[in-house]
Nucleic acid binder design. Structure first.
Lengths: 348, 348
DNA sequence: AGAAAACGAGAAAGCGCTTTCTCAACCGTT
DNA sequence: AACGGTTGAGAAAGCGCTTTCTCGTTTTCT
């Protein structure tokens, strides 16, 4: 083995030698093991400080069989939603002494499984955000990733803890809000087809339709970006709807921008709603009515589920007392601002 | 040592046993060492696949003395700038087979040094974003963090590679743009005092003043958020300036929002510029004139500097051939949009 | 006071790999 | 046919810790 020259980092044996004790004792002291003579402990600690000794994490990791690190797999680090999840996990995990390793698949979903597995091997667990992964692939991947926590997905056969946002309820709240204002013709400017959360919104709308047969709800296929929203204006106007629910705040803002250019007044002529309540939503003109999604909290909760998993007894498939399969749901909350009002026909 | 029951992960020795070779040979095959009989290599590979063997990273890390991980220290994961740096580093590093570990100090700058050191111990190197850290502290910390790459900071005594954005030039470009439009009274709505990049802007303005003594430039102390921008409107109007340079796009948008409420037309009565060219800048009303900062590229470049450091010969303080102390500068580029025009007095 | 229990610290065995070191088998020379 | 020179793979020594095992001491109980 190569022998690094002088600058070799100070190791546990250096401390042991200088303090006149064995490696074991130094280790015990560093780990707060109580069964060490307080006097010796103090001496060891002093020596450690003097020598600026810092235990090598890799050595510890190998010996303890854990890394105090959790992986977060996201499909796109540029997406504000995942950035917020990441932040939530990172901050919550930090409070428990864990660090976060990033695995960004850059939307190459074919790499997602591999990336997740690799992250799992390096970490004690993974938080998986994989909205586009097929259910079958997810189901197959899940067992090998244990412990794992899902964000905005659930597994069926395998039961993994999940943290999900009830997009269905959120969109229903928005639709109900528009209905109460007097709108009878609504349109949903949809998100990407493969998006799971778009599916949940559609399901929510289906439920709403059943409960309120008198309300018309059109679905206009579209995307998820500001640009997509901007480009949806023509279809929106063609639809004849007066209450428009955009996939998210970004597309709502794009739509708003185009409508503004066309001289169409919001909310006088058309009501528009967003989804997510991103920081900018309150500053658009008019300010956006939307459904607030506490996405950072989703990340925090994901960590807590992970922590429970990590602390739970070894036997992972045992009985009913394990925290397995717990699903924590966050409901978006309606935020009414200036972009919605009674429809023109009834208002005036 | 505790003996994990049945589900013990398949290790290198399992492969060796099943393939009828020694551990060493399996290791050699897995690492592409050529000095292995092709026939044996094939057999080993087949066994590895059959057994679904995946080398344990921790073991490798310890044996090789490296972790294939780089730490990114940021003061606030909620800040779009650092999110982008993080993304840049993460994607670029991934291409070289490295992963990123996050260290978010959550703006608790007293913890920054400790956090950075800890990240360094877990990783092969650190990319440090610490705009508020005092030069003295940075200088003291630098040696112990080697290899380290700085973002938007430089060290003096210690020479660490840096990737910086020339904020001074950017603000001068904006000032020059306003001057060319005919503005003679400018105001800079400053960022946080402790912010290094705010200091660079101020220095840039000082240079500009020297070169253009006829132009008045007031400095209005302020902050860095949308809210801060919104609240700066009164001071801005008091100043009597006609060309307003905001600290960044966020504050510019806040200012714009307030001015809009007051019925003050932009750019007819007042010209406003931002800084950063965040995605929303083009969608404000009017669209924001700003200085584009290629911040993701900054992150990518930071990784490249890090890679050079990691690949450079051991002796880190040796001669002139090392990539030490290389500073890569990115210049913001002026993006003229609708929020700037000739001042009212001259325009009409 | 003698034996049992409790304690505290050192020795040593790993954790799962990589990489020397070592040596047998094989090659081509004169 | 004997010999230095290659190859190629196994044996073994770590990498820097943690944790059991072990055993000499001290305390406690009857």
């Amino acid at each position: 083995m190569a022998k690094r020259a002088q600058t070799t980092r100070v190791g546990i044996s250096d401390v042991a030698a200088k303090a006149g004790v064995s490696l074991a004792t130094v280790s015990r002291v560093m780990n707060g093991n109580l069964s060490v003579d307080p006097q010796i402990a103090t001496r060891v600690r002093a020596t450690a400080t003097e020598l600026k000794y810092q235990p090598n994490p890799t050595g510890r990791n190998l010996a303890r069989g854990k890394t105090d690190t959790v992986g977060v797999v996201v499909p796109d680090l540029g997406n504000p939603t995942f950035q917020s999840v990441l932040r939530g996990v990172s901050r919550a995990a930090a409070l428990d002494g864990y660090r976060v390793l990033i695995a960004d698949s850059s939307e190459v979903s074919s790499e997602e499984s591999i990336l997740a597995s690799e992250a799992r091997r390096r970490c004690d667990g993974v938080v998986l955000c994989a909205p586009r992964m097929s259910p079958a692939e997810l189901e197959e991947l899940a067992p090998s990733l244990y412990p794992m926590v899902l964000v905005n997905r659930t597994t069926d056969a395998t039961s993994s803890p999940s943290v999900i946002v009830d997009y269905g309820k959120g969109i229903q709240d928005l639709a109900a809000h528009l209905m109460e204002l007097g709108h009878t013709r609504l349109a949903y400017v949809a998100g990407p087809e493969s998006s799971a959360s778009n599916g949940l919104r559609l399901a929510g709308l289906a439920t709403f339709r059943e409960a309120n047969p008198s309300i018309e709800i059109q679905v206009l296929p579209n995307g998820s970006t500001f640009e997509d929203g901007y480009n949806s204006a023509a279809a929106v106007l063609d639809s004849g709807a007066t209450g428009i629910m955009a996939f998210n705040d970004l597309t709502a803002m794009g739509l708003l921008s185009n409508l503004n250019e066309r001289g169409i007044r919001v909310p006088a002529e058309l009501s528009v709603t967003g989804f997510d309540d991103i920081p900018f939503a309150r500053y658009t003109t008019p300010a956006l009515t939307t459904a607030d999604v506490p996405i950072v909290e989703v990340g925090e909760q994901a960590w807590r589920q992970m922590r429970d998993l990590l602390n739970s007894p070894e036997g992972n498939d045992a009985g009913a007392s394990t925290p397995e399969g717990v699903t924590r749901t966050f409901s978006p909350s309606l935020v009414v601002r200036g972009s919605t009002a009674a429809p023109a026909s009834k208002a005036q």
